[in-house]
Amino acid sequence: MSSNTFKQAAEAARSKTSAMNKQSSEAVSAVKNDFLHTPVMRAALPFINGGISGMVATIVIQPIDMIKVRLQLAGEGGTTGPRPSPLSVTKDIIAQGKALDLYTGLSAGLLRQAVYTTARLGFFDTFLKGLSARAKAKGRDVTFVERASAGLAAGGIAAFIGNPADLALIRMQSDGLKPVAERKNYKSVIDALSSIVKSEGVTALWSGATPTVARAMALNVGQLAFFSEAKAQLKAHTQWSPLSQTLTASAIAGFFASFLSLPFDFVKTRLQKQHRGPDGKLPYRSMTDCFIKVAKQEGLTRFYRGFGTYYMRIAPHAMVTLIVVDYLGWLTQ
């Protein structure tokens, strides 16, 4: 057999192999696309992408959240005494243990995102698509009020569902403030939840649910509604890249989310951290009672203590969450 014959045979084999590989790749791509575009997956993807993005963001900002909680609990019940700063709180945490203590409650934080952010972003996207379809049918754009309504509804539903994980997170992060003999030393979020149920009952898992829901509704109006509106305005009035629009819109949303939700977040932290005293009574009876007592005993400005830290927790979390969810949306479109 001549060398030309060998060459022709080799080229034919390569062409056949290349064609088979191409067909295989196209088949895999078709299966993938068909799966992603099934009605069930199209409905589920906003929830799946939202949960993943929230968990990634939590891993990034967990130390800031830990510092924020400690700042809110410092000096409870009075206006005198030392005024801690984010730096002093960080130093204290590290001095008492190790740098990894800044990640205390991470398992609870991840569970919270798996439940809360999955629900809030999923519901918001679902509600907004419905509102967009209705607005398009009427020949108009979605209004800011409609975006805000979608944010309120999504935030309220998700916060109620995720309250047990949020409660466990606060208990784990505040445990280190107690005397050593009184600490629970929770091993994980499951340990924290089971401990709360055993000692306080199942209904205790929804302690602080009212301010948690109020906080989530305020935060979602600030974050999702303002982000959606800011991005729409930037897209219409600037020539910026999509990434620049997303970063700027998320920074704007982070500020409004922080400003609107911090007082509720403060009260939520106080209510979820509280325990019954020797007389069997809780320090605060309700969200309103907590607002009144803190205002009288500690002053109105106490509600905004740690605003900078809170913003540094909300804005990066919003940026990471929204960038990741945008990217996942692009991958699964």
Rank of each mutant, 00 (worst) to 15 (best):
K7P: 09
Q8E: 13
Q8C: 15
A9Y: 11
E11C: 09
S15N: 07
T17P: 06
A19Y: 10
K22E: 10
K22F: 13
Q23R: 14
Q23Y: 12
S24T: 15
E26M: 14
V31D: 11
V31Q: 10
K32V: 04
K32A: 08
H37Q: 07
T38A: 06
T38G: 04
A44W: 06
L45Q: 10
F47P: 00
I48Y: 13
N49A: 11
G50L: 05
V60Q: 08
K68E: 10
L71M: 06
Q72A: 09
Q72H: 09
Q72M: 14
L73K: 05
A74K: 00
P82A: 14
S85D: 01
P86S: 06
S88Y: 07
T90P: 02
K91F: 03
D92I: 10
I94E: 10
K98N: 15
A99H: 15
L100Y: 12
D101G: 04
G105Q: 02
S107K: 04
Y116K: 04
T117G: 11
L128T: 11
A135L: 14
A137E: 14
G139E: 05
V142N: 01
V142F: 09
F144V: 02
R147A: 05
L152T: 06
L152R: 09
G156E: 04
I157T: 02
I161W: 09
G162M: 05
G162Q: 02
A165I: 08
R183M: 04
K184M: 15
D191L: 09
A204P: 00
G208M: 01
G208S: 05
L219A: 10
N220P: 04
V221H: 03
A230Y: 00
L234A: 01
W240S: 09
S244Q: 12
A251P: 00
S258C: 06
F264P: 03
L271E: 07
G280E: 10
L282Q: 04
Y284Q: 09
Y284R: 04
C290M: 05
Q297C: 07
Q297N: 14
E298P: 01
G299L: 12
R305L: 12
F307D: 02
R313T: 04
L328F: 10
